[in-house]
Amino acid sequence: MSNWYMVTVVGHDQPGIVAGLSRVLSEGGWGLGESSMARLGGNFTIMMMVRGEGSASDLAQVIDPVGTSMGLHVHIDRIQAELHQHPEPNVQIRVYGADRTGIVADVTGDLAGAGLTILDLNSEVSGTGDSPVYVIVIDGFVENGADALDSAVQLLNKKGLKVDVEPIDILVG
C-alpha cells in the first residue's frame, strides 16, 4: 500500500525548481497528486502531494540532491489524502484597503463568524512603497448563500476596507 506525503519546498526563486523536483520524484517512482506553487515576495514556494511505497526518509533522500544543489528548504509530512473531493465555492470575496497590521485577521475573523468557510485565499501587497494597498481574493462556501455575509461586510466597510461579495454560479454544460 502506498503512502501519501505533503512535501513543502521553500527557497530563493530560480529557474528549473519544479522541473528538477518532479524529475527526481518520477525517476524515484513517486507519483504526484494535487499541488500548488506560488511565488511569494520573490520566494519560490510549493506544496505537493506525493505518493509512493517508501517512508518519509526514503522520500527525503530522493529529493535531497535537488534540494541541496538549489539551496531549497524541504519539509515532509505524512498525510491522509482525499482526492476527488473538491468542495465547490459559492461565493467570492474581494477586499482591498490601505495596508496595516491585522487586515487578514479582521476580514477572515468577521467572515468566519458569519459562516464562511475559506476554500482558497490569495493576497498581495500592492500599491507603492509609501502607500501600500493590501488586496485579498477569497473563494469560499457559505451554507446560506452570499446574503448571510451582508452584516459582516458592512462591519468591514466601516473599518475602512473595501469589501465586495459576489456569488459564484457554476455553469455546468
Binding site: 473538491h86 465547490e88 465555492p89 459564484i168 454560479d169 457554476i170 455553469l171 455546468v172 454544460g173
Partner: peptide, 13 residues
C-alpha cells in the same frame, strides 16, 4: 469570467 464545470469532465471546475 465565471466558473464552469462540464458533464463530460467530472469533478473539476
Amino acid at each position: 469570467t465565471g466558473r464552469e464545470g462540464c458533464l463530460s469532465v467530472p469533478d473539476y471546475t
